[in-house]
Simulated assay, not measured.
Amino acid sequence: MKKFLITVVVTFTTTLLSYGQVSAKGHDVALEVKNIIELDFVSSLTNPHFVFNQASDYDNGKTLEQAGTFKVRSNIQWIVDVKTATTFFQSNNGYQGLSASKLSIRKNGETVFKSLSTTPQVLTTGPRGGFDLNNFQIDYFAAPSYILPGEYTIDVVFTLSAP
């Protein structure tokens, strides 16, 4: 019994002494997270192009579906605005009277087209997330009426921002 008691005391003392020698230190780790917001555009077509070659095209206008795909990655909610760079289309025939409002846009899958102008308007909004979550396609609708034959072009500007 005496031997057992000595063994317990030695074990207990050794354990206490070994714990008494342990030292721990630490430090804080900080993550500084800033806003990130990125827009990527993948055009389904090199340059969206309408061809008006029948009277019904002029009477009814034409739709160009899935004209491009947008991808957004952001750690905050976001808005994509759309506008034209100029009030009128530029032409190769000298006619400068084709208004930007003759071109409309919508997010693919929606029913209402929005006429374009130099005033920005919201095309769509979305939540924070990566390209896999935040992507959408656009459709265009053009109704130029009976204008002079020629090529007409206009720059469409998309802006990604935080609300």
Score class of each variant (00 low, 15 high):
44 S>Q: 06
30 A>E: 04
119 T>P: 04
137 Q>D: 15
49 H>P: 01
78 W>M: 04
145 S>G: 09
58 Y>A: 01
8 V>P: 02
135 N>M: 09
27 H>R: 11
97 G>E: 09
39 L>Q: 02
55 A>F: 04
159 T>Y: 12
2 K>F: 08
21 Q>D: 03
18 S>K: 00
15 T>Y: 15
155 D>A: 05
35 N>L: 15
55 A>P: 02
85 A>V: 11
150 G>V: 09
88 F>W: 07
52 F>G: 03
11 T>M: 09
118 T>H: 02
2 K>D: 06
5 L>K: 07
10 V>L: 10
17 L>A: 11
41 F>E: 06
73 R>K: 15
139 D>R: 06
4 F>M: 11
82 V>W: 00
90 Q>P: 03
82 V>R: 00
141 F>Q: 09
23 S>A: 14
132 D>Y: 12
12 F>Q: 08
144 P>Y: 03
93 N>R: 08
17 L>M: 14
27 H>V: 12
23 S>N: 08
35 N>V: 15
155 D>G: 03
69 T>V: 15
140 Y>R: 03
51 V>E: 11
5 L>A: 09
26 G>V: 12
42 V>S: 14
40 D>F: 08
135 N>V: 12
147 I>V: 14
133 L>K: 04
51 V>K: 08
118 T>C: 01
33 V>W: 11
121 Q>P: 07
161 S>R: 14
139 D>P: 08
141 F>G: 01
80 V>L: 09
61 G>C: 13
97 G>Q: 13
121 Q>L: 15
45 L>Y: 07
151 E>R: 03
10 V>I: 14
62 K>E: 13
48 P>M: 01
93 N>G: 07
95 Y>D: 08
103 L>N: 00
25 K>N: 09
2 K>R: 11
77 Q>W: 13
100 A>D: 11
145 S>L: 15
130 G>H: 14
3 K>P: 02
87 T>E: 07
9 V>R: 02
53 N>P: 05
83 K>V: 05
145 S>C: 07
107 K>P: 03
24 A>Q: 15
115 S>L: 05
47 N>W: 02
17 L>K: 00
36 I>C: 00
132 D>R: 09
136 F>M: 14
59 D>F: 03
48 P>Q: 01
70 F>N: 00
18 S>A: 13
8 V>K: 02
158 F>M: 15
17 L>F: 07
2 K>C: 03
124 T>E: 02
57 D>Y: 08
138 I>S: 00
43 S>Q: 07
78 W>K: 03
30 A>H: 02
107 K>H: 07
3 K>C: 10
47 N>S: 10
117 S>H: 05
147 I>E: 04
154 I>N: 00
34 K>N: 13
146 Y>L: 13
66 Q>D: 10
73 R>E: 15
141 F>R: 12
51 V>Q: 06
60 N>G: 11
6 I>L: 15
83 K>C: 05
115 S>Q: 06
130 G>C: 12
